[in-house]
Structure formats: C-alpha cells, structure tokens
Nucleic acid binder design. Structure first.
Lengths: 136, 136
DNA sequence: TTCTGTGCAAATCTTTTGCATGGCA
DNA sequence: TGCCATGCAAAAGATTTGCACAGAA
C-alpha cells in the first residue's frame, strides 16, 4: 500500500483511491484482463467507470509501472516492479512468472554486449506446459 | 513464393492467392499493421475484404507461421521463419529485427536449463534507440 | 465432390473522447 | 486554488460472425 503510493508519487501521478485499488489488485492477482480489473475494483468502487480503468491502465503503462502481456487470447496486465519473464502454458493459457533475476540480467547483458547498445524493458515470453497440465 | 506454398501445405492450409499475397507482403515489408496489409493486398485483389485479412491473420498466427508484435501503439505482424528478436525504438517506434541466431539459441538453451523444461516460441523484445534516431 | 476460404454486411466487442464534476496536492 | 482524475454517455475503432458463393484439393 505505502509502496504503491511511493511509486505513484515518484512519477508525479496523483494518488487516487481508484488508482491504488487497481495497483493493489494487480499485486494480488497476477495477469488479469481489463475486464477482470474492472469487475474487481467495482466491488469497492461501485461507481467506477470502465473508462477510468482504461485511462489508468494507459497512464500506468506509459510510466512503466505496469506491463501489457499479449497472449494469443487477450491482453493481460502485470505489475512491473521486479524483472521477470513470462511462461504461457500452451495447453491452458495460464501465465507463470519466473523471477530468476540472474536469468533476466544474464540475457539483458548478453544482448547488450551482442548488439552494443543499452536496452530497456526487456520482455522475455515463451510457451511451455505448466505444472498442472504436465500432471494431468 | 514456392517457399510460402510449401509452408501452407505443411500445415494443411489451402493455398489461395489472397493468402499468398498476405505472406508475400509480410516477407517484403516487415511489421505491418492489419490495415497496412489490407491496403497493400487490395492493390492486387481489389475485392478482398478486411474480414478475410483478419481470418487469415488468425489462421496464420494459430499455425505459428506469423507472429504478433504488441508495440505501445498498434499490433503488428511478422513472418516467423527464422528465429529473431525485436528491438523497438523508444523514440520513433520502429521495430528492428535481430537475426543473431546464436543469441536466440543461447537464451533459449539458458532458459531451458534454468527452468528445466522445453520452451517454444521464445519471444524476446526490448526498447532501445535505433540507428537513425541515434544519429539525429 | 468435398470442404475450406472468400466477401459482404451486420453485429459485437474494445477502446477512446469530450465534457462536467470531483478531489488530490 | 489549480490541475489532474473521475464518471458518464456517446463516438469511434477493431474484430468477429453468419451466410451464400467460389474455388482449391
């Protein structure tokens, strides 16, 4: 909660209850769709409008606070505090985060060395079979 | 041209002139939007419908023949024959392909070793400054 | 001949916009 | 107080669907 406030203030964004609700939901539930965010936040802010969700998602995206994930199905959203990469299950579509920090760093440095440029917002996504589907 | 026919046949997809036109355009011009594909293909097939473009793009995507790239702006499309990764210019938005095959392979193997699973369709995308913008 | 693909129009879904009002700083 | 954010309704944009017909295998 406090953390989210600081993140917004750092970016000179106003701290509104709606904005905090979106961020807190994104911290709790990973990779929701716009519609899921809307449905959830509406529980605490029945008057919130879908337009407000869209406006906030765009603002947060522009400030690199959240990240958009393009699955074969829908666009989903993800809080962007710790570098990680995304494994999409090619069976059930679920997205899993991998927080092997050294791996993201390793790839980042490897790429930078190779192309001789600094890079930002490295996005690593791939398809695999998740644990649950592997068992079944 | 022949190559595209083979790719379609391999996937048991019908070889239609419209489909070939889309694929050939994707090979010529990298990363067009749906609208750009439509405008281009219409030059040779004035009667083609936007719905046909959408249906084909979805079919080709499902068969992993093409790949969708989510820029901060629009969805763009890319033919998926040779493994490569995408650098988006954070100034002008242009997408550049990097065909450093060993790099993609290196990252793929590194990830597979780390998470102890096979992965597919590895997507590596990041932001940087393109040559043109670096000069200006 | 069979079955997939095409083209059209309509329907649906998604996202953005304009504007008046509200509320953070 | 000054701006940025919100909420609403409407507009605009993007994508899908159903169906009749065409054309690839």
């Amino acid at each position: 909660m406090e953390k989210m406030i600081d993140i917004l203030k750092e970016q000179n964004l106003k701290v509104t209850p709606q904005r905090l609700a979106i961020l807190n939901f994104l911290e709790k539930k990973t990779h929701p769709t716009i519609e899921e965010i809307y449905e959830e936040v509406k529980k605490n802010f029945p008057s919130i409008s879908l337009a407000t969700i869209y406006k906030n998602i765009n603002t947060l995206k522009d400030h690199n606070i959240i990240r958009e994930i393009n699955t074969k199905d829908k666009l989903k959203y993800d809080i962007n505090l710790i570098p990680h990469f995304h494994a999409i299950c090619k069976n059930c579509g679920k997205i899993e985060d991998y927080y092997e920090e050294d791996l993201v760093l390793h790839c980042k440095e490897y790429i930078e060395k190779k192309i001789k440029k600094n890079i930002e917002n490295l996005d690593i996504t791939f398809y695999t079979i998740c644990e649950d589907c592997a068992k079944a």
